[in-house]
Design a binder for these strands. Sequence first.
DNA 1: TGCTTACGTAAGTGTCAACTAACGAAATAG
DNA 2: CTATTTCGTTAGTTGACACTTACGTAAGCA
Lengths: 105, 105
Amino acid sequence: MDTLLKAIAEPKRRDIIRLVWARELAAAEIAEYFPDVTRSAISQHLTVLRKNGVIHERREGTRRLYSVNRGEIIKLRAFLDSFWSDSLERLRDIAEVSELQKRAS
Amino acid sequence: MDTLLKAIAEPKRRDIIRLVWARELAAAEIAEYFPDVTRSAISQHLTVLRKNGVIHERREGTRRLYSVNRGEIIKLRAFLDSFWSDSLERLRDIAEVSELQKRAS
DNA sequence: TGCTTACGTAAGTGTCAACTAACGAAATAG
DNA sequence: CTATTTCGTTAGTTGACACTTACGTAAGCA
């Protein structure tokens, strides 16, 4: 979940998500929307998004078509929703945060 | 907004937010919940959260009491909500993302 | 005035992330 | 088979970030 949040904290990656939200796009088509960085940079962003399950890759000849994996987005949204709305109730009891901390270490 | 998202992508900072969500806590009290890092590390996390408007600092004698600034959390939530839900509609028109990119460069 | 408490801040370190330039791989066209 | 297209990957650089150690500061107390 940490890496997923970090993936979305990067503005170019959010733009990529928006680009492939409604339709499939090939890597080169995506890269065209970012004139001031190289294809390589975009390819690496695509790798990050793919490894976090945010986008799906489909090969067609020499091209690779990307589209959003909405299931993963929904998961992230659910995580954040519970973060906002449950924080008050859950953490009135401090013990739970202690647990989180112990697990993290 | 970028720095705000990065602030939340850090797990210890999310824990801090949860800690001061329901009640004010002094810096030392917050640090107690993180036994495996120094006070200094927590202080720096508090600075990041404060500079992003996520938490509010109130001085009382030598102590500094922190609490969540819910307004900023609500802003972030609204931003993400519109990110999820509007992405399809907004970005069916590719021009808008182009605009985003040009502004970012 | 000193001493202590409760903090932040500065300096330095190791690690990771974003990027460019150069190369490699795989499918297709001729 | 060779050349081209469409991509990913590797190597190397730069900057950001989480962290520790050490020091600075401001309030309260003897």
